[in-house]
């Protein structure tokens, strides 16, 4: 990780990707690493395709991650996972929430939503980790905790001490939501 660690969080505007990136930023600070997080606010948050870049390293200049330079993609939605796949390094990891949200061209029947995204990803040189985060979040009693479930999965695959993740989670979540979120995090971690 000393050479830097790049994470891309992709999804659909409104899915709550921003909290995830904030927690990741705290993880970097707790690891005493330099970090930059580039977020999307504004128009795209209205159901558009959104991407957040998180870069750890000794010193980080550009907040953007270039194609082919991502260690892990955390995808909140299937089509968005596929859209951003060229940003992944060879052999990189992609954690995919299996939720499907149809974009307007598909809703209108103008374009087809590719049905075989997981198969297509499986053909590539990468590690794919599919997660039914919506279902897990529901069973933890909070459908909104999809992001913390996915964070748990990421934590498991990151090689970073679990305690650092949990501390960072607590630093970014309001007291009264900590319990359900910790439950969701553990559920993701134990997958």
């Amino acid at each position: 990780m000393s050479k830097g660690y790049n994470i891309l969080i992709v999804g659909v505007g409104g899915q709550g990707t921003l909290l995830t990136s904030r927690i990741l930023g705290t993880v970097a600070i707790n690891l005493k690493q330099d970090v930059k997080v580039s977020e999307v606010h504004g128009m795209s948050q209205r159901g558009g395709s959104v991407v957040t870049y998180v870069k750890f390293g000794e010193t980080v200049n550009s907040p953007l991650i270039e194609a082919g330079e991502t260690d892990v993609i955390l995808a909140f939605e299937l089509l968005e996972a596929y859209r951003w796949i060229k940003y992944l390094k060879k052999g990189g990891k992609i954690i995919v929430n299996c939720q499907r949200i149809d974009p307007m061209p598909v809703i209108m029947g103008k374009q087809k939503y590719p049905e075989d995204i997981i198969d297509r990803l499986n053909e590539l040189d990468l590690q794919i980790i599919p997660v039914d985060a919506l279902c897990i979040a529901k069973s933890c009693g909070n459908i909104k905790a999809v992001n913390t479930v996915l964070l748990g999965v990421l934590a498991k695959h990151s090689g970073i001490d679990k305690k650092i993740w949990i501390d960072s989670l607590k630093e970014n979540i309001k007291e009264k939501f900590i319990e359900t979120n910790l439950k969701a995090f553990e559920a993701g971690y134990d997958l």
């Binding site: 159901g47 558009g48 953007l64 194609a67 060229k86 974009p103």
Partner: peptide, 27 residues
């Protein structure tokens, strides 16, 4: 950084076309 590499150093980055991915405009 990629654009600067391309324009100033002539380093072309391969642009694979992911043709059948529907766009997701805001709604």
């Amino acid at each position: 950084a990629q654009l600067i590499k391309e324009k100033l150093l002539g380093q072309k980055t391969e642009k694979e076309e992911t043709a059948d991915i529907p766009a997701r405009p805001p709604v």
